[in-house]
Amino acid sequence: MKDEGLNLIHILLLFSSLSLLSIGGGNTVIPEMQHKSVGAYGWLTDKQFADVFAISQAAPGPSVLLVTIIGYKAAGLLGALLATVAMILPAAALVFLVSRMWNRAADSPLRHAIERGFAPLTVGLVLASGYVMSHAADHDWRAYILTGVCTVICTATKTNPLFVVGGASFVGWLGWI
């Protein structure tokens, strides 16, 4: 029990600091997260970390919920909730302040410049993340064909994306990729 209390404190300190350090998205602090939760605190093994990472990537919702699983392993349900809140709250509070400034600056030239100027940059970044995602995982030629077909369907038709992802899952379930 004493251990669990200590774990809760470690969870709170670790994830609330990682929250503010996760500049560029949750994935940027994963090495540090692994270092601490596997090496320093021994909450999980290396293999377990890799597996729960895979679970968090595939599960619906933000992949940062990896921390929910780590918190659960370290200190049960309470640990899971604490880890989740600690990881989300500090960064979200900061974003909230920025978004208020943003909404107040509706007519400033800087905001207009950012909205127009950042659009091509963002598209470039989105393209890059699709490219990186397709290189990660075990994407072989069959998966590339599936991705290609789905891209054409999503782009050229008005098919509900849920059917596209559902269909792709079905193809996977059949063992074709």
């Binding site: 699709g130 995602m133 995982a137 991705t147 899952s169």
Partner: peptide
Amino acid sequence: NTLKGAAAGAVALTFSMAIKT
């Protein structure tokens, strides 16, 4: 396997967003 398929679909969605925008 199912998740592999879903991931392939999700990548497609991301590419298609890049094309549309």
